[in-house]
């Protein structure tokens, strides 16, 4: 310590004033204040919230109507099925379109036009699509399936073309060098490289769509959301509470299964070292 204090002090450069940080902080605070005034939030209500929540919770779970369970599970299954069909419909359109949006496969103008299609589709929320489809197809799962299908094309397409643009160009050069046509180049130079990631993102989108599909019932597009909306409106809190449990458990279960499959797709088959050694010994014994 003494030797350090004895040595001549060093001069730190002067600390720069971080104007950017100050501006950003100010903007955040001002926007918050402005927003709070505009929407007229009654902050005092926050204090009563715990009591309200307790009352709601009691109404929901003091007397659970278990006889409704099988019907609710059936409706949840409808929601999951709607999400699955919708996701596959979206994939059928998104995969070919994403090839047309990848700059490394088509020229820049075509890619640009296709991307604008994705952007427009992505800008419309599924609920809005469902509101448009309900008058066309009636209060039925058909409206929900189409809303999910059309709504997912944009986001799937965007993810897909980004995956395609990141592939290794070497195999594409090789397919050109064997005299392959454009379709053959796509089939053997591009698709084998992107298939695992594409499938993985498809499943991920399915997980997101299960949530969307549960919500779509609220506007009458089929599935469990309808029950949730109706029972809350008519104050049948018991059924609403059970429906909530079914939604949460159902979503977690499907998420877990889908996540495990995704992990397996991306990581590829893993070989346990012990298993592999046993295999070596076994074949050695056979020969």
């Amino acid at each position: 310590m003494s030797s350090m204090s004895a040595s001549p002090p060093v001069q730190l450069p002067s600390k720069p004033r971080d104007t950017f940080k100050i501006v950003v902080s100010t903007v955040f605070v001002v926007l918050f204040g402005w927003s709070a005034i505009s929407v007229d939030i009654k902050w005092s209500r926050l204090l009563e919230a715990p009591a309200d929540m307790y009352r709601l919770f009691k109404a929901m779970y003091s007397d659970i109507p278990w006889d409704e369970l099988s019907r609710l599970i059936g409706l949840m299954w409808d929601s999951i099925a709607m999400a699955w069909i919708g996701t596959l419909i979206a994939a059928v359109f998104a995969i070919p379109l994403s090839f047309l949006a990848a700059e490394n496969l088509v020229g820049r103008p075509i890619a640009w036009v296709t991307r604008q299609v994705f952007n427009v589709l992505r800008a419309v929320p599924e609920v809005i699509l469902a509101l448009l489809f309900v008058p066309m197809f009636g209060l039925s799962p058909m409206a929900g399936v189409l809303a999910i299908g059309v709504g997912s094309i944009g986001s799937l397409g965007k993810l897909f073309y980004e995956i395609i643009e990141n592939i290794d160009s070497g195999p594409i050069e090789a397919t050109d060098a064997v005299g392959a046509s454009r379709l053959q180049r796509l089939r053997w130079g591009v698709i084998p490289q992107v298939a695992p990631e594409l499938t993985s993102f498809l499943l991920y989108r399915f997980e997101i769509n299960i949530r969307a599909s549960s919500v779509l019932g609220v506007v009458g597009a089929g599935g469990i959301g309808g029950v949730l909306a109706d029972t809350v409106r008519f104050k049948e809190y018991g059924v609403a509470g059970l429906a909530l449990i079914v939604v949460i458990v159902g979503t977690i279960v499907v998420d877990t299964i889908s996540g495990a499959i995704r992990h397996r797709i991306v990581a590829g088959r893993t070989i346990d070292i012990g298993e592999a050694q046993k295999y070596v010994v076994d074949t050695g014994g056979l020969s």
Binding site: G170, P171, E173, T175, A177, V178, G189, P192, Q193
Partner: peptide, 27 residues
């Protein structure tokens, strides 16, 4: 009619050896 061999091999790593070789038959 002209085969090509590359420095970086340019194989599609995610598919089988046979599928890679079958690319030579695409035409």
């Amino acid at each position: 009619e002209v085969g090509m061999i590359f420095q970086g091999f340019n194989l599609v790593d995610r598919t089988t050896v046979l599928n890679n070789v079958l690319m030579g038959r695409l035409h």
